[in-house]
Design a protein around this nucleic acid. Sequence first.
DNA 1: CCGCTTCGTCGAAGCGCTTCGACGAAGTCT
DNA 2: AGACTTCGTCGAAGCGCTTCGACGAAGCGG
Lengths: 352, 352
Amino acid sequence: MATMHDVARLAQVSVSTVSYVLTGTRPISQATRNKVLAAMAQLDYQPNAMARGLASRRSRILGLLMPMDERGLGATETAFVTGAAAAASVAGYHLVLSPVGGGNPDDLRRLASQRMLDGVVLMEVQLADERVTVLQEVGVPLVLIGRTGDTSTLSYVDIDFDQTVREAVAHLVSLGHRQIVYVNHSAATLASGYGPALRTRDAFTAAMTGHGLEPVMIAAEDSAAGGRAALAAAFAQAPKLTAVLAMNETAIFGILGELTGRGLSVPDDVSVVSMVTSPQVAELATPALTAMTSPGSALGRIAIEALTRHLDGPADQRHQQLLPCTLEIRGSTAAPRRPALATSGPTPNNGG
Amino acid sequence: MATMHDVARLAQVSVSTVSYVLTGTRPISQATRNKVLAAMAQLDYQPNAMARGLASRRSRILGLLMPMDERGLGATETAFVTGAAAAASVAGYHLVLSPVGGGNPDDLRRLASQRMLDGVVLMEVQLADERVTVLQEVGVPLVLIGRTGDTSTLSYVDIDFDQTVREAVAHLVSLGHRQIVYVNHSAATLASGYGPALRTRDAFTAAMTGHGLEPVMIAAEDSAAGGRAALAAAFAQAPKLTAVLAMNETAIFGILGELTGRGLSVPDDVSVVSMVTSPQVAELATPALTAMTSPGSALGRIAIEALTRHLDGPADQRHQQLLPCTLEIRGSTAAPRRPALATSGPTPNNGG
DNA sequence: CCGCTTCGTCGAAGCGCTTCGACGAAGTCT
DNA sequence: AGACTTCGTCGAAGCGCTTCGACGAAGCGG
């Protein structure tokens, strides 16, 4: 392993000159620069990351803290990660993912106070999130994906659930649906303060009320069985429902299964829209699901950009931004068989 | 941020003594140790990871290099990651995931030569994998998940595809199936030298031949449409097939959809077994899929243990180990409607 | 042509830690 | 009892880099 010293000797300059060539923090003549670069190439020199980090007090490593549970990561999350990694690379940082279990905030505190990470992006933030507190105490620059309850002081990037739900509902209403049921995450998830579940619940109520319709929400366990149960509950509460809106990638397969089991066809008898869903998952179902696709890659990019701007720039302003999901019409939505008393809306169509 | 110096001064000992308390590399009297520990607690001292790393020339960070593509990570992969992270933590290491795109081996070389990672676990290894070469050149201790073509010199942990396929085939044969089709990954994947696809192909041929049956394999694109096409191809090649074995978590949903589309019921008309599949995905389908569940968490743990043993122990022996998937019978397998001429086998049953 | 800034380079002082050699005190053989 | 180890501690020398202050050499306005 060649060191900077070796490069300096070979190029017949001082170590500091080599350092300036590497970092560009002071002007270096073109001739000297070339000599140094040649020496580096000849020795196959790679700077030692830890020495740089120690001396400069910045590791140029960003951490992405993601809870890894048994559910796996959807395409949305991986798009997020790749978007973030690409943005970090552009800004001259490395991105590493740390699979912190939700379990142990002490682990997190230790990791963060060891000064190995210049900044942190926190995924799957709860409305009241202990991890946020820990990280703030330690003083690590922080960007959240999702929001805590009190959004005032922190930087975050999140999905615009309000607009996403509004758009999904508008799509169904414009097709002629009037009895729309929203299948949310489980009651336990809601109770634990999971922001997306809470915010979509409120947005759904608002959107339906805005159309003069009655909002019906069902909480479903995150499993196929949960989806089946939820559909049964939905029919119990709204026997004449013609459309299901769901934000539960797992339960939705149970919903589809149960629909088929009841002899109902999608989309002719019941339309289905899946929210915050990746195209890959949407294509898994037959028919492919009309879905609100999450802006995964953009979320990741923007989060990292906000973080690096904070780290490199002098002003430590915060960045708060919402991005809506986009409607992608596939085969699971159509006009209801017997359109309810049409109040408004364009011609129903078969959404290709 | 308190430093070791501060701790030493407060405890009225030398810095080296504090270091020995921290690392346990030399004996320290109980009295001194207590003084030091008290000082650390009082100052809320956390050692600086980069200083330790620079001085000791070991970062105590292990990298898990995982390709992140648009397909997302299944529960198998996340189980792998959590198993690995837990094992690393036990051994006193941090595990970070690096989302290296398959794209750029130079990025990888840079990352690895910066001495930030004490060792590396490489996922999704190809039979001829450029990344392996790069990492070996750089001299980073390495454990593979999967195997290269030449398995002689490297440490690896992999699924025992041979036994897994044998067991899956045995299950179907014992139910009375004789016409079994194997749906593999795509032809392109096979051509690219993806080990699991190649090995299961050979294992399937061997297993079927061993039972005196004819092996039929179909390559399917990793998509629902690919699955549908594969099923059509399967029926073209083996019109009387009664069972499908698949190793393609995405295509399998297309297979199921197409089966339903043809008016065939699972498991009464056709049995389906999904290989290297997590319980979560298996439960998504209706009926839930009989599957060969991959030993994700154990794979991760064993890989990390092999790596840390190599790093901490003196002998640098290599570790090569295969783990089979375990059969979990759910609702997608049963005796065929008209069992073929029974050659052997226990009583067909309905697999709970 | 003198004082002044800017350019390009050097040497040295750390960054916060580990680790080596040394050394007095104590224990252990024989 | 003398010769060795072992124990418990210290001081100092780095690990490989960044960064600060310094300084000769140009460039330049007056």
